[in-house]
Design a protein around this nucleic acid. Structure first.
Lengths: 342, 342
DNA sequence: TACTTTCGTGTAATCGATTACATAATTTAA
DNA sequence: TTAAATTATGTAATCGATTACACGAAAGTA
């Protein structure tokens, strides 16, 4: 059933050598036109398909690129991957997916596996929990495999990145809450060893200071990105002597939890308490009480990452390119924080 | 920078041949224990890494599997892929992602590309729009590449599938609406050339008949899976002489659209009108008016697909295996359809 | 005509690993 | 002690494509 046809089979049939067949198929200029046409016709007739594995071995390029994300079943990461796939499809690259589940060990394994599989490039969102050990990343770079961080980035020489301006995202959102009249704004942060959470926090803080509001350490709560974590965080905030009247959450899920908890206590949103999230998860706009959130344009981020990869992949090795692309965040103001009239 | 170490380098250093090195590394029983240890030690010292591409060429197996989905940025498909990846990770397979965007042309291209890349198996959710041309699928089977359909399946000899019992899902949901006292239940369906939509419809119809309700053609509306489509569909239903008092939607998004449209008309849910969806998208449980929906256990579906693949991949070619796994749907009853007390 | 280019194709090495077969080394049996 | 059996290793082909180099034939030049 369906014997594999090789260039040797074509060569034999035409009484020429495989070298000539290869040249004809690759549009090598030093081949007679008549021969080329004959080979092409015969190849088509015999249903020849190039063996990519042989090509990959010979060339050292697999035409695969690897993508490493904490998990794929999150709207954000799935959208980024969609963008990557769409941008790379016309160039003939296949996208290999790896998940870390926020495990450094898994991240390192994935990096090594991808290098071993000789992918032509790696795009990833790092798993943050601080590890001093960059050896897996260095291993990638030593092998001259282009490495690109998206969203969650790290400072490593030779690595390009595509991120959004998280500082600005935090700033804009906080400023918006201030403009709505909020006086005591809390913040849900994530693991600040990750730049994204650090910068959202810094943007938040700066917006407070620039607008004459006091920054209170007790208003900053470190939460996981989950509904339950959001509930618990609000619970803690409301126990304070002077509880806040708004929260800017680095996570939409935590923001949702906050809203659910506030509603269960009959605290009116946005009248008594405003809530804003981050990531613009689909549900934020679907809710009846739609949730204000910062869009990270994941699709664009994926496409941009792919473009950066394409730029790097064919450059001569001599010049080390390191490109930092920063996308603009976009604040979507919705009911959860809009006190003033629509 | 980081020369690639091959078995020839190891052989040279130890004054033996590459064959011996290969055997030692592969735990071939006919190698002297001392030699094996020496090779292993040397390989480790030299930081040897097996070249997967060479192995793939020699063995004809790439250790990659392909997954084709309409789009990746849907919670359902992303979760299935997550399941596949997690199940296959311990077995050393890498997962290649392809999107069709519901285009048959793209689907066929992807199938050919994956076969050309010599993946060891393909798992996919078909793009339904009726095409009589099964040649791409047959091409896969001729090459002896295990092919597994999940969720959206097709009847093709030699192809295994993992689906849920959509008929039952439709039946259960409709029965539930009847039990809540609904007398005139409408249905939003999708492209019925896809079994999933056909079967949900049939389950719906059967539940009506089994419970003495009239089946009305005019209550069945074919919609896209989008919020706007749901709004429009409800709009049309309400124009009928005897408008329905409930809808079972094959899409959560259309169900959401229905709810939004009903609410904008001040029709009370679930008191005057009940709504149920399908897929158990995350937002259905997040809404204040949470939406009744059928869970398809996508994670389990992915894992199961992977397991079916693993069963098939090593079987001798002589026996043709064709496994049909049908998972049970699970109805999640929520506020949008729960008239009676909680 | 004789000599140099140019053109088209063949030869053979290469990418890195695996493995059937051959052979050398060692052990066992007689 | 010698033949037979066993064990460990080497030799070389193979997977399928690409490509530097060699070479014969055709074309151009003097």
């Amino acid at each position: 059933m369906s014997e594999k046809v090789t260039i040797y089979d074509i060569a034999e049939k035409l009484n020429i050598t495989a070298a000539t067949v290869s040249r004809a198929l690759n549009n090598n200029p030093k081949i007679k036109e008549a021969t080329r046409e004959l080979v092409l016709k015969t190849a088509a007739a015999m249903n020849y398909k190039q063996n990519k594995l042989a090509l990959a071995l010979k060339s050292g390029r697999s035409n695969n690129i690897g993508v490493i994300v904490p998990r794929i079943d999150s709207n954000f990461f799935a959208s980024v991957i969609r963008g990557i796939e769409e941008e790379l499809y016309p160039h003939g690259y296949q996208v290999i997916i790896c998940q870390t589940h926020e495990s450094i060990k898994r991240e390192n394994e994935n990096l090594h596996t991808l290098v071993d599989a000789q992918v032509d490039g790696i795009m990833m969102s790092v798993t943050g929990i601080s590890d001093e050990n960059d050896s897996a990343f260095r291993h990638v770079l030593e092998k001259n495999v282009p490495l690109i961080f998206f969203d969650r980035s790290k400072h490593i020489d030779g690595v390009s990145s595509v991120t959004i301006n998280d500082f600005k995202g935090g700033y804009l959102t906080t400023k918006h809450l201030i403009d709505e009249g909020c006086k005591a704004i809390a913040h849900f942060s994530g693991d600040q060893s990750l730049d994204i959470f650090k910068n959202r926090f810094l943007g938040y803080k700066q917006a407070l200071l620039d607008n004459g509001l006091e920054f209170k350490e007790e208003y900053v709560i470190y939460t996981k990105s989950s509904v339950d974590a959001g509930k618990e965080a609000v619970d803690n905030l409301l126990k304070l002597d002077t509880p806040p009247d708004a929260v800017f959450s680095s996570s939409d899920f935590a923001a949702l939890g906050a809203i659910q908890e506030l509603q269960s206590r009959n605290i009116s949103i946005p009248k008594e308490f405003c809530v804003a999230g981050f990531s613009n998860e689909p549900f934020t706009k679907f809710m009846e009480l739609s949730i204000t959130s910062v869009d990270q344009s994941p699709l664009e981020m994926g496409k941009m990452s792919a473009r950066v990869f394409l730029e790097q992949v064919d450059k001569t090795d001599t010049i080390k390119i390191e490109k930092k692309v920063v996308l603009a965040p976009e604040l979507h103001i919705r009911k959860s924080s809009k006190k003033t009239n629509f």
